[in-house]
């Protein structure tokens, strides 16, 4: 399994790490800290819908969410594997982490496609 999959998983991990590094801090700061504290005004419900409705926004959201999940899956897998020395559970850990990221990607894709 190793030969064919490691580079692909690492590519997803790296792309996710880079995207997360560039976009997530500002999103968390604006959406979930500054706006709830009233420091900035977020778009109204209708405007936000229009913004997310734009195909480009949906594409960016899909890439960020999906790759961030694969970034987590890869890192967390090795944290469990080496950090807790769970070598005998290697297969199970891989299935759970990458599986979660795959399911998350599909759910995200579906949610963005059917977004009103």
């Amino acid at each position: 399994m190793r030969r064919s999959q490691e580079p692909g998983l690492w590519a997803l991990f790296s792309a996710g790490g880079m995207l997360a590094a560039l976009v997530l801090p500002v999103l968390v700061a604006v959406l979930w800290i500054a706006a709830p504290l009233g420091w900035v005004e977020l778009p109204t419900h209708a405007n936000l819908r229009a913004l997310i409705g734009h195909p480009l926004t949906r594409l960016v959201l899909f890439a960020v969410v999906s790759l961030a999940l694969f970034h987590w899956a890869h890192r967390f897998r090795y944290t469990l594997y080496d950090g807790l020395q769970l070598y005998h559970l290697n297969q199970l850990i891989a299935i759970i982490t990458y599986g979660t990221a795959t399911v998350g990607t599909m759910v995200t894709g579906y949610a963005l496609v059917v977004f009103p």
Partner: peptide
Amino acid sequence: YKLSATLDWVKST
């Protein structure tokens, strides 16, 4: 090395 192995993989797969 990881980056070049990944680029190799992208090229061939």
